[in-house]
Design a binder for these strands. Structure first.
Lengths: 190, 190
DNA sequence: CTGTCATTTCAGTAATTTCTGAAATAACAG
DNA sequence: CTGTTATTTCAGAAATTACTGAAATGACAG
């Protein structure tokens, strides 16, 4: 590996984390390298920078493309492929969320739905279905929320994040006022 | 494996997903089994149900315990260990979020901080630091939001989810009113 | 203590995943 | 066409991860 020390730390870290994130070391390293690189890189540049085989680079780039995490670019009068990551970190976050959902959540949701359609043949199965139904309900709530929020433009999303739990405090206050109003009216009636 | 078909589907699915979630097949299967089981199970029951070795069960349960995803129970006059998962799916979600953050996010945040402290020695490093700083900023925002939201009780959290993006529509409306007020006052002054 | 039952550890093996080099394919210029 | 350059494929090697059986440890009753 042949990189400035500061960049190397970053690349190596992404490599190590790769396995925890469900991608492998090389894929993580290539992504990190492209992310910090000022311009697009071609496959041979990646080979030189990371000291891995050409074929490994090819396969790992393909993997990154299936994740929609890299962009293919072409320079005029050069038939090689050059790769970058999108500039906007918020866009990267959206892509990551979308792809992880597709891989980690959606299949489970569909398995749960399928099982819940079936007729339980025993108490054990009945109980299991109840538990699965709870899980299904939670995941559906989360994905509905996600579908709702992912449409927001970046600045709206940022606002939402900044608000955080404050929103519920507002709602709490509102609830109190409403219930006060109600109890007042009830008192007036009685 | 010796399980009612409906439960077996669930268990096998969790096994397959395991690798995508950064845990292994056996760990996923054991978790799924405990999740749908009406009462706590001991290690030998798990061995019978899943057809895996006793030592594997022991190691996998230990793994699940480090994730805080299973609870150890004891029955009176029985020295064996029995295991369950927490009942409340919302609590499970919190635990999962917390543990994944600890494993997948926090290390990256600390590496980024460390690198950003250093003095760049070239244009390449300067540019890389800028990119890392963007990433760092995004992750900090997300974790601040998360720290804020994770304290909410379940019903408040559920409310927040149900609201989803509606909150920003409210804010949008509020912004308009405020800016109308401002421009009116500006007009009055001018 | 001693014997029994439960759990954990761990070295070796099995299975899976990752990586490579060589060959195949593709895309193009002359 | 032919030669050159770029990319992909893929069978086997290397590395990593998961799993097992046997032995060790622990916990307790008598």
């Amino acid at each position: 590996m042949n990189l400035p020390p500061l960049i190397q730390s970053f690349v190596l870290h992404f490599g190590e984390m790769g396995s925890r994130w469900g991608i492998n070391r090389t894929v993580g390293q290539i992504y990190a390298l492209l992310y910090v690189s000022p311009e697009p890189l071609n496959a041979d540049q990646i080979v030189d920078a990371l000291g891995i085989s050409r074929s490994n680079v090819s396969m790992s780039l393909r993997e990154l493309q299936t994740w929609n995490l890299v962009l293919l670019k072409h320079l005029p009068a050069d038939r090689r492929d050059f790769f970058t990551t999108p500039d906007d970190v918020w866009q990267i976050l959206r892509t990551l969320a979308e792809e992880r959902k597709k891989r980690e959540v959606d299949p489970t949701l569909s398995v749960l739905r399928e099982i819940l359609m079936q007729q339980p043949a025993s108490d054990a199965e009945r109980h299991a279905q109840e538990r699965m139904s709870e899980m299904h309900g939670l995941i559906e709530r989360l994905t509905t929320w996600y579908d709702d929020v992912k449409k927001l433009e970046t600045d709206r999303l940022a606002t939402l994040l900044t608000l955080g739990a404050k929103v519920t405090k507002l709602l709490e206050a509102k609830d109190k006022i409403v219930s006060l109003g109600r109890s007042k009216r009830t008192t007036e009636k009685g």
